[in-house]
């Protein structure tokens, strides 16, 4: 079943085509990665999904409903969760409070139930011993983990991750991969991942979408993408098409 469906998305900023006729679908429970060089339009595409950017043309369907004109909070309520490229936790709230903000849109939760459910997620993410610490006192790796906890606080159907491994050390990346796998298994969560860490992408993604200059230049399983000449030339330039990533 298709859970997220973007059709013919185009977006221009003046003379710059940020996205041109991009199609992309995500099935329930699927793990899709979006890769591409800097400025390829990856974050813009995520922003189109969440409604922070309104596309010039095209449509976004969430679980079969056209949400192209819907405000962000309605889309989040309908099952989107996301993290940001540079980590946007609320610095002067505690870990628990951050996750509570993420859980606040869950339907029919009273104050106590909301706190309980936030505490449960914190426990699952291995953050229980820092639950009452303010974010600004935490390490970068912890902050990213809090952001992930916050994004899944309301059991989204699709989790959008914008470079979650950026700035993390290898132990923290391993931890992140483990938590993600656990979350997917538990909630049948679909994930859309933007990431420059190719090791992580190739290991986790079931399907990869490659963007370059705002257009989709390739799509397929990790092995196919690694061998795709258009992808190689986008990353390495013409003349290196014979090389392998």
């Amino acid at each position: 079943m298709t859970i997220l469906d973007a059709r013919n998305i185009s977006k221009r900023y003046g003379g710059l085509a940020a996205l041109t006729d991009v199609d992309m679908t995500v099935s329930a429970g699927e793990f899709v990665a979006i890769i591409g060089p800097n400025g390829a339009g990856k974050s813009t595409l995520l922003n189109v999904f969440t409604g922070l950017v309104v596309p010039d043309s095209g449509a976004v369907l969430l679980a079969g409903n056209d949400v192209t004109r819907h405000a962000t909070n309605r889309r989040i309520k309908a099952g989107l969760g996301r993290t940001f490229q540079h980590g946007r936790t609320f610095p002067r709230l505690t870990v628990l409070e951050n996750v509570m903000v993420g859980a606040a849109i869950c339907p029919t939760l009273g104050e106590r139930a909301l706190r309980e459910s936030a505490l449960q997620i914190i426990e699952q993410m291995g953050l229980a011993d820092i639950a009452d610490n303010a974010i600004r006192t935490l390490s970068y790796g912890h902050r990213r983990m809090v952001e992930l906890a916050r994004a899944v606080a309301c059991n989204p159907k699709v989790l959008l991750l914008d470079e979650p491994a950026a700035g993390l050390n290898s132990a923290e990346v391993a931890q992140l991969v483990k938590r993600l796998a656990h979350l997917r298994e538990k909630h049948q969560l679909a994930v859309v991942l933007i990431e420059h860490n190719m090791g992580m992408v190739m290991r986790l993604a079931e399907r990869i979408v490659v963007l370059n200059f705002g257009s989709k230049i390739a799509e397929g399983a990790p092995a196919e993408i690694q061998a795709n000449p258009a992808v190689l030339s986008a990353y390495l330039g013409e003349g290196y098409a014979h090389a392998r990533v």
Binding site: T50, L52, I76, F90, R92, E97, M100, A104
Partner: peptide, 22 residues
């Protein structure tokens, strides 16, 4: 209260708060 925590969240980062569905 979750409403008050939401208020503090909005005060710190409006865009991120919006993306939490507030």
């Amino acid at each position: 209260t979750s409403f008050g925590i939401g208020m503090r969240a909005v005060a710190q980062d409006v865009q991120a708060a919006r993306l939490m569905g507030l």
